[in-house]
Design a protein around this nucleic acid. Structure first.
Length: 354
DNA sequence: AAATCGGGGTT
DNA sequence: AACCCAGATTT
C-alpha cells in the first residue's frame, strides 16, 4: 500500500498538515497534558462522541478520579455515575477494569507497548494508535471516522478497505511528530473536511486533494445505507412509598444500559405483565394507579415508545437484593441513571436532589 | 461481515 | 429526518 504513495506527496502532506495543525488547533483540555492516563481517558470518552459533549464529562471525571490508582480502587457504580448521560456505558465498565489491570500488572503505569495496550478491555486498534502516538510520541498510525473521510477525499476513493486505510495511515504518519500529524488529520476532519459542505478554501491540503480537484468532496467516502432503528414498545411503572421513596432496579451488567438503574420496566405493551414481573422479581404487589404519559426515545438501533404508569402498592415486602432498592430523592441522585430514565422520572415529577 | 451499544449536534 | 461522531466487542 505504501508503494502507491510517492514519497514527495507523503512529505508534502505531512509538512502542510502539521504546520496547519500548529496554527489552527483548538485548545482542548487533553491537549494541555501529556499524562497517559488523561490521554487514555479522553480517547475512551471520545469514542463515537463529539468533543463538545465530552469536555464537561472529562473535567468532572478527572476531579473525581485523578489517577489510574484512584480509578482502579473506585466502586464501579461511582464510575458509572460520572459517565451517566454520555452513553455507551461499556466504555466506563471497560475503563474501570483496564485500570485494575494496569495497577496490578503494569505498576500503575499505562503501558507503551501496542500488544499490552491492545490487551486492555475497551482499547481497540484506534485507541492503541492514539495513546501511543499522542501520549508516548510513537510513530503509530490511527484511523477514525475523520481520518477515513480525509483520506478518502485526498485519494478520491469512495470504498477504501480497512486494510488500505490503515496501510495509508501507517505510510503517512510523521515519524518526527506523530502526535501532531494524527491529531492534525482528525482536527482537519472535524473542523474543515466535514461530512457535508466541507470548507475546502480553508484546507491546507487542497493542492493534494483529488476529490477537490474533481470538485466533488462530498462524494467521498460513500456512505452505506443504514437500516432504520427497530420500533420497540415498552412500559415502565413508577412505584413510590409515601411519595418520598421510589423503587429502583439495577439492570444486568451486560447489554443495553448495563449496570445502570431504572424504574420497573419491560418490553412490550402489557401493564399486567409488568406487574407480574415486578412481583416475581421483588416480591412486591402493585396495581395501576394512573397513566402518566408516553415517552419517545431513540437509540442508535432502536426506537422506543415507552408508556409510563404510576403504580399503587398493594402489599408484599421487598426481597433483600443488591439490585432493588427504595431510594429517596438524595439517593436517587447518587445512582447512575441513563437519559431515558432521567426523562421518565421527570415525566413522573420525581426529581433527584443533592 | 453484521449487529450491538447512547446520546446529541448539524444540516 | 438523516447523518454521523477521536470505536470496541460480540455474534
Amino acid at each position: 500500500m505504501s508503494s502507491r504513495l510517492p514519497r514527495k506527496l507523503r512529505d508534502t502532506i505531512r509538512r502542510r498538515l502539521i504546520h496547519w495543525y500548529r496554527r489552527e488547533q483548538r485548545d482542548l483540555p487533553w491537549r494541555r497534558t501529556r499524562d497517559p492516563y488523561r490521554i487514555w481517558l479522553s480517547e475512551m470518552m471520545l469514542q463515537q462522541t463529539r468533543v463538545e459533549t465530552v469536555i464537561p464529562y472529562y473535567e468532572r471525571f478527572l476531579e473525581r478520579f485523578p489517577t489510574v490508582d484512584v480509578l482502579a480502587s473506585a466502586d464501579e457504580e461511582d464510575v458509572l455515575r460520572e459517565w451517566a448521560g454520555l452513553g455507551y456505558y461499556a466504555r466506563a465498565r471497560n475503563l474501570k477494569r483496564a485500570a485494575e489491570h494496569i495497577v496490578r500488572d503494569h505498576g500503575s503505569m499505562v503501558p507503551e507497548d501496542a500488544r499490552q495496550l491492545g490487551a486492555l478491555p475497551g482499547i481497540g486498534r484506534y485507541t492503541v494508535g492514539a495513546i501511543r502516538s499522542i501520549a508516548f510520541r510513537k510513530p503509530a498510525a490511527l484511523v477514525d471516522g475523520n481520518v477515513n473521510r480525509v483520506l478518502s477525499r485526498l485519494f478520491a476513493e469512495p470504498h477504501f478497505t480497512d486494510a488500505a486505510l490503515w496501510g495509508l495511515a501507517e505510510a503517512l504518519v510523521s515519524p518526527s511528530s506523530p502526535h501532531e500529524f494524527n491529531q492534525g488529520l482528525m482536527e482537519l476532519g472535524a473542523t474543515v473536511c466535514v461530512p457535508r459542505k466541507p470548507a475546502c478554501e480553508r484546507c491546507p491540503l487542497t493542492g493534494q486533494c483529488e476529490a477537490r480537484q474533481m470538485d466533488r468532496p462530498e462524494d467521498f467516502p460513500a456512505s452505506k445505507p443504514k437500516p432504520p432503528p427497530k420500533e420497540v414498545q415498552a412500559v415502565s411503572g413508577i412505584l413510590s412509598r409515601g411519595g418520598t421513596r421510589w423503587l429502583m432496579l439495577r439492570r444486568p451488567s451486560k447489554g443495553l444500559l448495563g449496570g445502570l438503574w431504572e424504574v420497573p420496566s419491560m418490553e412490550g405493551d402489557n401493564p399486567k405483565a409488568l406487574l407480574a414481573q415486578l412481583e416475581e422479581r421483588t416480591g412486591l404487589r402493585a396495581s395501576i394507579k394512573s397513566e402518566l404519559g408516553t415517552l419517545r426515545h431513540i437509540f442508535t438501533h432502536r426506537a422506543l415508545t415507552l408508556r409510563v404508569l404510576e403504580l399503587q402498592a398493594e402489599g408484599g415486602r421487598l426481597k433483600r437484593s443488591a439490585d432493588a432498592r427504595w431510594v429517596d430523592a438524595h439517593e436517587l441522585s447518587e445512582l447512575p441513571l441513563s437519559r431515558l430514565i432521567q426523562k421518565t422520572l421527570k415525566l413522573a415529577d420525581v426529581h433527584p436532589s443533592r
